[in-house]
Computed example of a mutant assay.
Amino acid sequence: MRNIVIVQQYVPSYRIPFFEALSATLEMQEIELTVAASTPPRSLSKRSDSADAKWITRVPEYRIDAVGKSLILGGSHKSWKKSDGVILPLQGTCIDSYRALMGANRHSRRVGLWGHVKSYVNAPNRIDIAAERWLMERADQIFAYTPGGARFAVASGIKSNKITTVMNSVNTDSLEIARKSLTDSKVKDFRGKYDIPNEHNISYIGALDESKRIKFLCNVLDKLWIEDPSITLLVGGRGDQEHLLNDAVKRGQCKMLGYVDDEAKALMGHVSAAIVIPGRIGLVAVESLLLGLPILSTNWPYHAPESEYLTEGSTLYTSENTIPAYAHLIMKSVNGGTKKFPNEGCPIYPTLANMVQNFTTGISKMLS
């Protein structure tokens, strides 16, 4: 049986179903999967979403953080030095990715790189772009999150047969079941538990950290409290910036639900007009499509690849990147200016099964 190793910074709980399904699918092709992962860095640890599983091999991660950049010095190489293939981060600052492509066993071990490919969540940097192009040129397979990343790789000179478009997603099975099994009684209990009004509600689902622009959201809430105090924000998530919402919580404008399961997400979707994400739109795009809720965002330039799944004017509404403009968009939404869309008629979104099949195909190409 051949074996491959996928290296991750850490494994968040939402990735467990993907790796479980991928492992089972690869096993049918006589390929054994190991995931080599460290623990979350301090900046991500307060998300409280790190997970463990029998197929995870814990590895150290040595890094230097300076001037807003992280140089990852390595630590995973012992986990994959005897493997038939390894998939590492496509990241110009990851030393292990260079080590895999330049190592003594390079010709007997296949190397894949997995990442955004394009600079979505940061401003493009010439050095990073050049380094990542160098890595891509020498890798056996590139695993791009979305079509935009794949197109960028082709435009950078990478042959299309070396690129797998993963269509990054999450397991939505339990969320769909939860949505379909909602009852009037469950909704009533949910409203009562958190003292949620009958109308003018919006939801936030995701991590509460800098990438999501929680400070900006707080400033918008301050303005909304003056302009329309009837608007209530339901927050499902944890993070190192959740304390910034304390003032909104104290005045009853914001309801903190903590880390939410799929039933809570379904209930949030049922009682809300929209999902607010002023900062980075990521995998919440997939969940919003299933819930039938539009996302309200800004034209801030650093959204994640999954924002490509949304369509402006139907599943996504975007304001200028200012506090007054975003507050106006929210007020417009809760007063009927944006519409929920029927789940049966929502745009097709990538499922976990799609992602597993795409990744399996890419691994087969990489090992061939």
Score class of each variant (00 low, 15 high):
I87G: 01
L88C: 01
P89H: 07
Q91N: 15
Q91T: 14
T93L: 14
T93G: 04
C94K: 06
G103C: 11
A104E: 09
A104Q: 01
N105H: 12
R106A: 08
H107Y: 09
S108P: 02
R109N: 07
R109W: 00
R110I: 03
G112A: 04
G112N: 03
G112K: 01
L113V: 05
W114S: 02
G115I: 00
G115P: 00
K118C: 05
Y120H: 15
Y120P: 12
N122A: 14
P124A: 14
N125C: 07
R126W: 13
I127F: 11
D128K: 13
I129L: 14
A130H: 09
E132A: 02
E132K: 13
E132V: 08
R133V: 12
R133W: 04
E137C: 04
A139L: 03
A139I: 02
D140G: 07
D140N: 12
Q141Y: 04
Q141D: 01
Q141S: 10
I142H: 01
I142W: 08
I142N: 02
I142T: 04
A144I: 01
T146S: 10
P147W: 03
G148K: 09
R151S: 13
F152H: 15
A153S: 11
A153H: 08
V154G: 00
V154P: 00
I158H: 03
K159S: 15
S160M: 11
K162Q: 09
I163H: 02
T165V: 06
M167E: 10
N168C: 02
N168K: 00
S169N: 10
V170A: 11
N171Q: 14
T172H: 08
D173S: 11
D173C: 03
I177M: 11
A178F: 04
L182N: 05
T183Y: 04
T183P: 05
S185V: 11
V187D: 07
V187L: 15
V187C: 11
K188A: 15
K188M: 11
K188H: 05
D189H: 10
D189S: 11
F190S: 08
F190A: 05
G192W: 08
K193L: 12
Y194D: 10
I196N: 08
I196Y: 08
P197L: 13
N198Q: 11
S203C: 13
Y204L: 01
I205C: 03
G206Y: 06
G206K: 03
G206C: 12
A207F: 10
L208G: 00
L208T: 02
D209F: 00
